[in-house]
Each structure stands twice: as structure tokens, then as C-alpha cells.
Design a protein around this nucleic acid. Structure first.
Lengths: 270, 270
DNA sequence: AAGCGTTGTTCCACATAATGGAACATCTCC
DNA sequence: GGAGATGTTCCATTATGTGGAACAACGCTT
């Protein structure tokens, strides 16, 4: 029927049928940083006008999207409701929490917990400098794995084949001067990270922001994640970060150990 | 094809096609408070086995659900990613924030901001007693409108017809002794709330918890919401709540005014 | 260890529901 | 008031999802 859906944009690919298309549209709108108009979406998702129109209609009916007065689309409230339990019921986060707090007390800087999902890191928790900010603006945020500390740490703990698959799938965008520009460059650093046991982000994703990170792996649950301590370069030197590396590795190890125990045998009985 | 999907569980109803069924499944899993097994879902969503099986397969492929080792299903991380912008890009929340903070400073108790979505209130922000808790456990949570302060305040600002439609759709569950048990009972209180301009929750949803709330309405954006101040009964008496009512109404009015201005003309040009 | 119930998975003829090209509105800026 | 966008509707075509029923894989009990 369609000659194009064979190509993989970034999603899993073929067999997902109608739902896959709907989700691609949803993701296009949710990922964009401003309300998307019909034509915008038309371009990001390569679908015929008629189809897209109906798809959007359904998404709005379902409350997944909201159409504003100027006809542009925004993510709807229902998403928040649905996500609620994927966060609040997240045992892994619960387990990690005290360790994150401890790490924050030791360093005084922002601590992140993120989970690897293909080429992305999704942040599931954050402890930051005691501020009035309540829901941290980062929860649920997705960042590319190849240019973040947690991302690289997580990648480094994958089997080589898996790592290469993901590296091949990654789109290298030069966020800053120091961002990796190729899979080769990334794979090189991963080697080093494997030896050291921790990863640095030297202003590779955002200028003036750097971090140390270590990975957390729970194979029984196909869970690959990481913790990091992040700070602004003007306050946190690389030497300082290096000094924290052991603590970060330590925290990661503790979380990993506890998760293995408390999350149970998992899909071992598959 | 199917003789049952005509009945409305709680979702919009018919014309949403395949996507609608998928979302019903997703919602069933996300709403349940523990991992759902195939058979559990089979019962909550009235779909034939074959259909449900494929549906679940697709949802897992898309990352919306995760299948665990014991074959049970949980909400997936992708939901968190998708919800991210429905929260972080939410202008209304941004606008309300300073007012919530002020209200919190005045009262010292927990302040909520919630938006009405049919029969439910979805909490989009929360300011609580300065604790170490970071992401408030409430963001994205959905509670029934008929037994919460914000819910009743929001309902009271609807046109009578709309109110009755929603009341008719509501399932009255007796959470506590004081929970409304019928639409009639609810409609009665709504009358009163309209006169007063604010609503109380007298331990109707959770024992030992009560609140005062006032509604926020931005018709241009089809937005019906509310703010509340909540506290445990042992510390916050009804007299105390009544004393705060004016402040709550005031904050609501301020938010409403600012939202009208800053959110722009909205769908007026429809 | 055989038997039975429960739970999850696969198959396939069938028709519903998605498809997408093209014509029709509607708005916007010269 | 016309030319170029941008959004909406229509409808014959068939791919896609449907769901009954048979099958497989447990986990209990006898």
C-alpha cells in the first residue's frame, strides 16, 4: 500500500501497523519545541495528507493531542496521566533515590538518573541544588546517548555487537565543538570508558556543562542505566569531576546491587 | 465485528478506530496499580483474545508497554518521554506557578493545581511543605472530580448542561463516609459552591485529608482548572480552611486573569 | 507421572477500517 | 481579486486488523 514506511526514521520499523504511524505523529509533535501546524507534521512524518488528517483527528479525539485556536497541535493532558504510573510505579527509581540523595550531599551538585532506550537516555530522576524548583524540569526528558555522560557510560556496558548496532543507528549532531561527530570517534572513547569504569561529558551536549557518570546494569531486567554528577564548568573543574568519579562508581554499584536483589529474578524464566 | 465496543467504559466512545482500542488497553495497564497479566487485561478491556494479543504486541514494540519476566505488562518508558513536553511546555502551569508559591507561603500547606478532563482532575503542579521530596508524587495523577476540592470547584464553573452530562457519566465510588454517593447529592453541593465561589473537600476522597479550592476558567482555551490548599485534618480545621478561602479565590482569579492575557485569543478564531 | 484446568500463543478466512490521490474549501498576502 | 499557500473532505481500493477456534505451555492435583 505504502512504498515508504519501510524506511526506518528512528522507530522500530515495520510490524507495528497503524499504531506505529499514530505514534510517529505523536512523537513528532511531542519532540518539537513549539506547537506544530499541519504542514510541519506533514513534513516530519512522511504520510499522505488524507491519512495524516485522519490520524490527527483520532489523536485529538483520544486526548493525546490538543488542537489550539491557530490550528496547531500540542501534546495533550492524557499523556501526563498515562505517564504517571510509568514514573510513580517505577521501582527502580525508588531503589536508586536514597543513593542519589547521598551523592548529592557529598558533591553539592546536580545528580541525574537515566535509563538507556536505544539511542537515547531518558532521565527518570534528578536531585538538584536545594532550590525552590519542585518537579525537576528534566524528568522524562530524552537526550542522545552519544554525547551525555550517562549515555556513554550506559553504552560502554553493552556487548560490542549491541553497541555497534546502536552507534550505527545514531545521528551525530554537533551540539558543541567537542561533540562526537562519528561512530568511530564515539567507539574510541567507549573503549577508554570501559577501562576507567566511568564516563565524562566534557561540554559535549551543552556548552559550559560537564559531568561524570557510571553505568548501572541489571541484565535480568534488560535494564541499562546510569547515574551522573553534573555541574557548570565555571564551578566544577575536570579535576574535581575526576575526584568524584569513585563516588559515582560506588553509588552506581550500590544501586545495581540493590536493584538486582529487590527487582527479583525478572525475565530469567523466559 | 464486535458487539461490545459500543458501550462506553469511560473513554470518548466510538469513532476512534484501532487507536482507540490500543489506548483503552494502555489506559487499563497504566491505571491499574500493579502489573497486569494477559488475563487481567482481557477482563478490563472487552476484546477477544486474538485481538488483544496482537494489540499488546504492538504496544510493546512501540515501547508504550514493557513485558516483564512473569509475562505481566507495565507502562513503558516511552510514555514518560512523550509526556515530558505536555508538562514542561505547559504555559498554563508556568503562569500559575508564582501564584501557587505565594499561596503556599501564606498558608504553609500543600498547594495543588489541577485541570479538569471530563470526569477527572489531572494534577499538573504541586507545591508542598519544604521537604526533600523532589518530583512531587502527584504530577500527572488523575483523581475523580466529584470528590476532590479542585474537581468540585471546576465542575461548579461549567454550564449546567455540561455539568449534568459529566455527573451522569460519573461512577460514584464511596471512598470515605463523606463521599458523594449520587449525582443528585453532588449537584446539590455544586449549587452551594457556585454561591460561595469556593469548594471544600471534607475528607471525601481520603480520610484525614481536607482542602479548599477555587476554579480557574479560560473559555478561550476550553480550559477548566482549579487551585487548592490541602492539609491533614488534625492540623487544619475547617475554620482554618474557611479563613483561607478568600486567598484561594484570589489566587485563582489572578491566575485566570493572567492566563487570559498571556495565552492569547485562543480558539476564538475558529 | 498421568490428567485437568488455567493461561498464553498462533492461525486464517473475512470484512472492517485505514489508505492516499485528487478535488474542494479557506485563508493570506500581494 | 487573483495566485499560493494551507487545511479539509471524498471515495474507490485493499491492506490491516478482526476474532473464533485450535494449539501449546505451563502449574496443580490426584
Amino acid at each position: 500500500m505504502d512504498g515508504k514506511n519501510v524506511t526506518d526514521l528512528e522507530s522500530e520499523g515495520p510490524g507495528t501497523g497503524t499504531l506505529g504511524k499514530a505514534m510517529a505523529v505523536l512523537e513528532a509533535v511531542a519532540t518539537a519545541d513549539r506547537p506544530q501546524r499541519f504542514t510541519d507534521i506533514l513534513q516530519s512524518v512522511g504520510q499522505p495528507r488524507g491519512t495524516l488528517h485522519r490520524l490527527l483527528g483520532h489523536l485529538v479525539d483520544e486526548g493525546l493531542l490538543v488542537q489550539r485556536g491557530d490550528l496547531s497541535y500540542e501534546p495533550g493532558l492524557r499523556l501526563l496521566k498515562l505517564a504517571y504510573r510509568s514514573w510513580s510505579g517505577n521501582q527502580f527509581r525508588d531503589i536508586a533515590e536514597p543513593h542519589l540523595l547521598r551523592l548529592h550531599e557529598m558533591t553539592g551538585e546536580t545528580v541525574h538518573l537515566g535509563i538507556l532506550r536505544e539511542t537515547e537516555i531518558i532521565y527518570v530522576d534528578k536531585v538538584e541544588s536545594r532550590q525552590t524548583v519542585r518537579m525537576s524540569s528534566q524528568i522524562g526528558k530524552a537526550s542522545p546517548a552519544y554525547c551525555t555522560g550517562i549515555g556513554k557510560a550506559a553504552l560502554s556496558s553493552l556487548a560490542q555487537g549491541e553497541l555497534e548496532r546502536i552507534a550505527a543507528k545514531t545521528q551525530f549532531v554537533a551540539f558543541t565543538e567537542r561533540t562526537h561527530r562519528s561512530a568511530m570517534s564515539l567507539l574510541g572513547e567507549i573503549e577508554e570508558i570501559r577501562r576507567e569504569g566511568h564516563a565524562f561529558d566534557r561540554e559535549e551536549h551543552e556548552a559550559e556543562i560537564c559531568c561524570v557518570a557510571a553505568s548501572i546494569v541489571v541484565p535480568e531486567h534488560e535494564l541499562v542505566a546510569g547515574v551522573s554528577v553534573t555541574g557548570p564548568s565555571y564551578r566544577v573543574t575536570m579535576t574535581q569531576l575526576a575526584a568524584w568519579a569513585a563516588d559515582v562508581r560506588n553509588a552506581a554499584a550500590k544501586i545495581e546491587e540493590e536493584a538486582r536483589i529487590r527487582l527479583g529474578p525478572g525475565r530469567g524464566g523466559r
